Simulated scan of single mutants.
Amino acid sequence: MQVLHHVFVPKVWHSLLEPGYKLLGVIRNPFDHFTSVFNYFAVSVRISREFNVSNATAFDYFLKHPNVYFKYFAHDDGNFIFKNPLLFDFGYTEDSNVPLKRFLAYVKRRFAVVLVADYMDESLILLKRTLCWNMRDILIFSKNKSRWKNIADPSTMPKGEKLYQEREALYKKWSKEDIIFYDTFLQILRDRIAKEPFFQEELNVYRRVREITRKYCNKSVGLNKPVIIKASVFNEQFKIDKYLCNRLRLHVLNYILKLQNKNNRTLQVLQGIRNSKFQWSDENQDAMGEFVKPDKKINLLKVSARNLKGKKYQLTKGQLLRKQSIGHVQEDRGN
């Protein structure tokens, strides 16, 4: 299950998922995230208009007078700046009446991995090892980066500059709980990595493979001939082809839509099986994955979603045909 721009509300998730579920989360340096939001939603324009300050100094004005800003825009639907937005996304607010230390312990238990965007390569390797994935599963391209920059954009400043450090210090005073949350899970990431054998070696292999993938997918010609990534102690052999490139280039919204469509087709297939009125189509083949030649018939009414998980089938003429035994599914031999 994947969500986008979603606030974690345990009550909602408990109603949707089986008990004992685990989650994956992503966090980002709070100050860098703040500067991104500040610029994307043009908060400086609102500040300069309402408080009679220049657009170039609006960012510093906010950091020095955040409470003045919030008092003025407290009930404004157009306000996109919040205190401790990272904690808010994970379901914690000042009205939660839960000590922050206790909430941190809860997130540690509920989330299998919290990825850190500022250390995405390292996070992905840890995710791969935690979920027993292959290296091909964690290949990514950076997309949806803001291209808008101007002289007043604080995120363009080198992080070593004195002014950046002064601004970051002001932000940390105002949103200190977010800083605690971020530092806690950054340290957890580092501690887990320190316990992983040969982590740096796998990280180096991953970065080389990703660079090979990037160069291959950026080619204007020659995509018909795939590149083979040979097996190593860190990965199985796999190929980089134009189909992989197309998926990697997809915008996140388009990719989620693609997954939703695939899941919907799978549900339609399963519903057709339950109703014994399945109709063959190419979309069904795509939804169910790789199909194999039939060798035995089985009773359609005995097939359930649980039986189908991870198996390979061929569906034709209203019947589901199998290649391998599927546990407790009863065979139809005309009895």
Rank of each mutant, 00 (worst) to 15 (best):
A152I: 04
F62M: 02
I125A: 00
T156R: 12
E177A: 08
G272K: 06
D241N: 15
I229N: 03
V303T: 00
A74L: 05
Y61W: 15
I256N: 13
N79V: 04
E50D: 14
R265N: 15
S325W: 09
Y216H: 12
V107A: 08
K309M: 06
D282C: 05
L100E: 08
Q279E: 14
A42C: 07
Y171K: 00
Y243P: 00
P99V: 08
A194Q: 10
D60S: 13
V252K: 11
A194W: 00
F198S: 11
V7H: 12
D191L: 06
Y313M: 14
R110N: 06
V303E: 00
F73V: 02
L253C: 01
L270A: 02
E161R: 12
A117K: 05
R136W: 02
V107Q: 03
L223C: 09
K149S: 08
V269R: 00
A152E: 11
V9M: 06
K312D: 07
S48P: 00
K262F: 08
T93W: 06
F8P: 01
N264L: 13
P197M: 04
N218R: 11
L124M: 15
L223S: 08
L4A: 09
R265L: 14
T57I: 09
D178Q: 06
N144A: 11
K159E: 10
T316L: 14
M288Q: 05
I273W: 03
L189S: 11
L223H: 11
S281H: 05
G289Q: 09
L104H: 07
R274M: 04
R192I: 00
F278C: 13
I212H: 05
L248F: 03
K317Y: 13
L23G: 05
I298K: 01
D183N: 15
S96W: 10
V292R: 14
V26N: 06
L124K: 02
L315C: 15
A152Y: 11
D89K: 08
S281G: 01
I228C: 07
K230E: 13
V26A: 07
L223F: 03
D76Q: 01
D295P: 04
F199N: 02
L4S: 10
V303A: 02
S146V: 04
L320G: 04
G272E: 15
K145I: 15
L16I: 13
N79P: 05
R208G: 04
I179A: 04
K317N: 15
F291V: 13
F199M: 04
D153A: 12
N79K: 05
K296V: 15
K225I: 14
R333D: 10
Y216V: 05
P66A: 02
F34K: 00
L24Q: 04
S325P: 03
S175R: 01
F238Y: 11
R207G: 00
N261L: 14
T213P: 03
E50K: 11
I27S: 03
G310E: 13
R147A: 09
P19H: 06
I151Q: 11
S220L: 12
P85D: 02
N246K: 14
Y119Q: 12
F41S: 09
Q187E: 15
N224L: 13
D183W: 01
K277L: 06
V12H: 09
K215P: 03
M120A: 07
I180A: 03
L139C: 01
L100Y: 09
F38M: 01
N261Y: 11
P197K: 11
S232I: 05
P154G: 01
E201F: 06
I125R: 03
Y40Q: 10
K83L: 01
S304N: 06
K262N: 14
D118A: 00
